[in-house]
Design a protein around this nucleic acid. Structure first.
Lengths: 364, 364
DNA sequence: CAGTGGTTTGAATCCCATC
DNA sequence: AGATGGGATTCAAACCACT
């Protein structure tokens, strides 16, 4: 996994690289990237120009054949850059790709064929999409993002609590309502848009906040106007951007003015999973609960006795607080910390309160 | 185009055919169908049982018809039924397919390869989706429909004005908010759902209203519970349903009670749109409030700091504006929108003022 | 009958550290 | 690397029992 594996390839950090994305990805060390966000071109004609063996034009020959040929070359292009991304991604990293109905099905199929495991498809609902002027279709008011891990068994980063916090303590859904990039955020030169498909920073912030940690490396193989790098820098992540058109490397200028948020603002909401694990036996060892103490379920229908080794006994059965809790309820599983209660001041309190005490003691 | 083209094949009308969809499609005359709605197996690939936090088991889709040995076999199946559909579709007809991230990319790719021309991808946003019980992904809150014509140059039916009327005289967007099928609409036998994936009638009504005329023939190659036929009949369209599982052919019973609306009743109803919910985190994302900004209660006794994920931190505690507001007051609950204030022009203003701004932005 | 509070349920690729 | 077991995890809507 060291540098040697890649013949001494080094990972540039906080750099925008001008060049072909596949060539440049091949120069990066394997398994070095935590998160990839890709906004690939979906102009089939462009892919065509890039990959047709000869430069002959095909219009007017046979529409069906032309279409197939275009899709085929686009698919080849898609597989190539996705495979190159797969190589540089850490096993526990993840990949996001954004697209529209023109290309997203090709991308999704290629992803799955390469072994990526789709975690969600996320819809960016635009508050202010361009109307359909001719009134012949529905207003194309969204784009689709695919979020995928490196494989079915792979672990991946998901800041569940942060996403929940962003949505007023409700689970974040797979449909996100965000305005398109306009106004002051939109980069312009001489009044004209610098980049045709500049993504809003809010979109990238949410992606990066959801699927990476502070200090992680975020890569964008199709940098464009640099929104991914901007959001990464602001959120205290390192970035690597690759962009073919040197004109777009003006993103470097844009980046200079971006200030990383202070560490306090970057702290994310953490759930119970992040808490240090305290075995039930530790409560007994620490003297917070004596062997022989009686524990009760909330309705006081069952009584269990604490034993010196941190197991409990109830109605002839013995085992962990979880196992016995499940057993007396006839349930598959049980969280013993919230199920079992002890008596204090004439009331029943969950033993989880004692775990909180234990954690405070252990932390001090 | 006449009957003779297909050796005397005849189009059954308002019939549910029990049989394999490809075999049965092959028996229908070519170019005889105006609109196809297909709800194919999703190939969910569910590996394990899933339990809710309260230990109840989720009744997932484990039917044999949803099991495929590989993506390759799913792709083959998809191409076959799509090709059969293509043959029976009129040149100016169109096709809808619904799916989730498990299968929709395969379907979209196959569609395009067969020469269908994608008109829109339409998102069905569920008002009441099943949550993500383990907190490991985003709530899977939508499904995707692909709407396609028979080719790039093909004409197709789109009732633009009807859709506009349905959406308060605004162009109908590509994201539709509709509840899942439950309550009285959900078919049950002995208290158990008759079909695992019954679609809401409102969804099918909108599809049929958008893409067909009264008197047109609507075909559903995977009839299931029969929602397509029900919606077609109600809207004065003829239907042809194909369903392999004879158990589901109970849809015939369901259909008997459906009455076709008289033309006057077909007038669309207009609903008042609820005020958009704006999570506090959206203010941060939209740049209306920077991470690190200080918030105060009206008396400026407490100071909290805004964080990048839309949570706030105050006196060691962290959480939503509501939670922390309640916490510092020692109250059970608190409306953070009116409790917390920010400083502007030397005065304290409630953050609710920023929510108003956000709503204006989101509405524009 | 209206309101309240508890229960059920839905196309779901749903854990992870330790041994 | 597979098995073990601790223990973390849910939202909207319909329905039902009860006051």
């Amino acid at each position: 996994m060291g540098v040697g594996d890649d013949g001494g390839l080094r990972l540039p950090r906080n750099k925008i690289i001008v060049g072909d994305c596949i060539e440049e990805l091949d120069k990066l060390p394997a398994k070095s990237i935590d998160l990839i966000f890709a906004d690939p071109p979906y102009n089939l004609q462009l892919a065509n120009e890039l990959y047709r063996p000869n430069n002959s034009r095909v219009d007017g020959v046979d529409d069906d054949w032309d279409k197939f040929s275009s899709f085929e070359s686009y698919d080849r292009f898609t597989r190539d850059w996705l495979a190159a991304c797969r190589r540089v991604l850490k096993p526990n990293g993840s990949l996001w790709v954004i697209g529209s109905y023109h290309n997203i099905f090709r991308v999704g199929t290629a992803l799955q064929d390469l072994g990526f495991w789709v975690l969600n498809d996320v819809i960016w609902r635009k508050t202010n999409p361009m109307p359909n002027f001719r009134g012949r279709r529905f207003t194309n008011a969204h784009e689709t993002m695919i979020w995928a891990s490196t494989g079915q068994k792979a672990r991946y980063t998901f800041n569940y609590e942060s996403m929940k916090a962003l949505n007023e303590d409700l689970q974040m859904r797979s449909d996100w309502l965000l305005p398109i990039c306009s106004g002051g955020e939109r980069l312009r030169q001489d009044g004209r848009k610098t980049h045709p498909t500049q993504k809003p920073e809010a979109l990238l912030q949410r992606v990066i906040l959801a699927a990476s940690h502070v200090g992680d490396v975020v890569l964008d193989p199709f940098m464009g106007s640099g929104t991914t790098a901007v959001a990464a820098k602001r959120l205290g992540r390192a970035f690597v951007g690759i962009e073919r058109e040197s004109a777009y490397a003006s993103a470097r200028e844009r980046l200079k003015s971006i200030v990383t948020l202070d560490p306090a603002s970057l702290q994310v909401s953490k759930g119970k999973r992040a808490e240090t694990r305290v075995p039930f036996g530790a409560l007994v060892e620490m003297g917070l609960l004596s062997p022989g103490t009686a524990l009760y379920d909330p309705a006081a229908r069952h009584e269990a006795k604490v034993r010196a080794d941190g197991s409990i006994a109830c109605a002839g059965a013995q085992g962990s607080i979880h196992k016995i809790g499940a057993h007396v309820q006839g349930a598959m599983a049980c969280n013993g910390w919230t199920f079992w209660h002890y008596e204090a001041d004439g009331a029943l309190k969950p033993i989880d309160a004692l775990r909180v005490e234990a954690r405070q003691k252990l932390a001090s």
